[in-house]
Amino acid sequence: MDQDRIRVQTEDFSIEEETKKLLACSKRIGGVVNFLGTARDFSKGQEIHKIDFDHYPGMAEKRLAEIREQALKDYDIIEVTIIHRVGEISIGENIVLIVVGAEHRKDAFRACSWCIDELKRITPIWKKETTPDGIVWVEEHP
């Protein structure tokens, strides 16, 4: 079950499907907060044509699992799903999804915000942007 809650994959995901799966785990859930990160076409004053994500297989999944476990300990929430796509991603496509289910909305919002910040801070995933001037590896996480 937990393996399905943490995924690093090349294929797209369905927000509706993941939300349904999370809701199915407990009837106590009264609020679900989703964070969806998508590929935008503009960054630091430059047009972006496409994005590629590289990751450290094994370590990236391990970090996401730690984030999920920590969120379940530190916040009054019921379940968390974290999915990150890797490989080539076109503009407008989905990149990352975090789904948090809790009895009440405030805990779900707080946990979801913490999870995405932590994902950016500790997960070995890297982004390469293709711009009109060439290819740039992004080195910060705003």
Binding site: H55, H84, V96, I116, K120, T123, W137, E140, H141
Partner: peptide
């Protein structure tokens, strides 16, 4: 051992 540049996921 792995050399890891600054992370940029999300």
């Amino acid at each position: 051992i792995a050399f890891l540049p600054p992370f940029a996921g999300g």
